[in-house]
Amino acid sequence: MENNTTQLRAAFFDMSHSPYIILDENLILIDINTNALANIPVNKKDIIGKKFTDLFPDAPNNRLNAYREVINTGVPIDVEEVKLCLPSGEFVFFVKVFRVGEGIGFAALNITKMINTIDSQKKVALKLKDFNTRLKQRNKDLEVFSYVAAHDIKAPLTNIHTLLSFLENEGLIKKSGRPVFLKVIQSLDIMTSKLKALNDVIALKYSLSEKQELVTFKEIITNVKSEISEDIKKFDVQIREDFSQCNAILYNPEQLHSVLQNLLTNSIKYRNPNISPIIKISTKKENGKCVLKISDNGIGINMKLGQNKMFGLFKRMHTHVEGLGVGLYIVKSIITSHGGSIKVTSKINQGTKFKIVL
């Protein structure tokens, strides 16, 4: 019976999926199973009888002492990243050390591939971090270039405007050439307007990191309505507000003012001429964040053109009214810089709804 038990233990030891080695009380290797030999490409006869220090010459003294302590006390220990250096390569194991008879046993898990994968991922992460750093620097350089270019172009445009005014005031434009002259003036005005808008966008980009403070929606919307009061009166615009569910937010006040001003101005600009304009503004809490909703009963937007175009710089969804296509670009830039999002739903002649997570 005892012989059968010994044979069963030997079979279990040799057929286990885990690598096992057994050392005697002098830390000399006396047995190793098939799986261990598969993980360590050596011949069994070449390592049986070898001292642990011969097999693992880089093992620190405190670890050897720990193994001897297991032999003395019988208390098992776990050892992480045990390295085995062989002519065929370097192998790394996670090891469970426990007492076997008068010696100790090692149950090992080969983590070489996992360690190599982690090292590879660390290298990729470092490369990605370096790439992001260089990309941020390039973006910063591009912003500076854009600012300088826009600033430098402003003076020549002003000079051209002055020269054209001089030609007109001195009567130097012939009647036959006047239509062309007026088109030049028109083109110059458009270019000047776009340059100003570009400067405004660049200035906004530089100010997006400014500190925040607690601001109330009621105060901001009151200021916005005061600024566009002439249009509100002229077109008999009704503005219905409800800030009861979220009346204040930690935000940059100038940027929140810009968001509301652009959206209200757009609602008035793209009103339906056949009905009285109604703009609804409300706030509420969703998933711990303040959500701003603005809807109108204007002419609506063709959503088939896509939201990417809607929020693009100098992109316009309607051409029958004046505009540069900058307002919504500014709105989205502000919102996304604060980690928020903006969604639009609209139908032609049925109005437009904005949902903004601030």
Rank of each mutant, 00 (worst) to 15 (best):
I111Y: 01
R316S: 06
H151G: 05
F91A: 02
L263E: 07
D296L: 08
T336Q: 06
L126W: 02
A108L: 13
T117G: 00
I118D: 04
G325R: 14
S16I: 02
V92P: 01
D130G: 01
T345D: 11
K175S: 10
K96G: 10
T112A: 04
E219G: 05
D24W: 00
H338P: 00
V148R: 14
A155W: 01
P87T: 09
I342K: 06
I115S: 03
Q238E: 14
S226E: 10
N272I: 04
G103Q: 05
D58F: 01
I202W: 07
Y206Q: 12
L204I: 11
I228Q: 11
V144R: 11
V100W: 02
D130H: 03
I334G: 10
I334E: 04
N62T: 10
N169C: 03
I118Q: 08
I294S: 06
E80Q: 13
D130A: 13
G101W: 00
F56W: 03
I22L: 15
E102M: 07
L157V: 12
S244E: 08
G103P: 03
L23F: 11
M191G: 09
V331Q: 07
K234P: 01
K113Y: 05
V97P: 06
K269C: 04
E25D: 14
K140D: 15
K225W: 00
F311Q: 06
K284C: 12
F217I: 09
E254M: 04
T34Q: 15
G89H: 02
L142S: 10
S165P: 00
M310G: 08
K315Q: 12
M114N: 15
K45R: 13
D31I: 02
A155V: 12
N39S: 07
V237A: 07
N199P: 00
N132H: 07
S165R: 01
A11L: 11
I335K: 11
Q121D: 14
M310T: 12
G101H: 01
K343P: 00
Y251F: 15
L84K: 04
S295R: 12
V237K: 05
N274V: 10
I249Q: 14
C246A: 15
K269Y: 04
L135D: 03
T283E: 01
R178P: 00
I111P: 05
S276N: 13
R178K: 14
M191H: 07
I301Y: 04
V215A: 10
L256A: 08
T352E: 07
M317R: 14
F311E: 02
K83N: 07
N287P: 01
I330A: 09
Q261R: 11
T192F: 06
E219V: 09
N116A: 12
A10C: 01
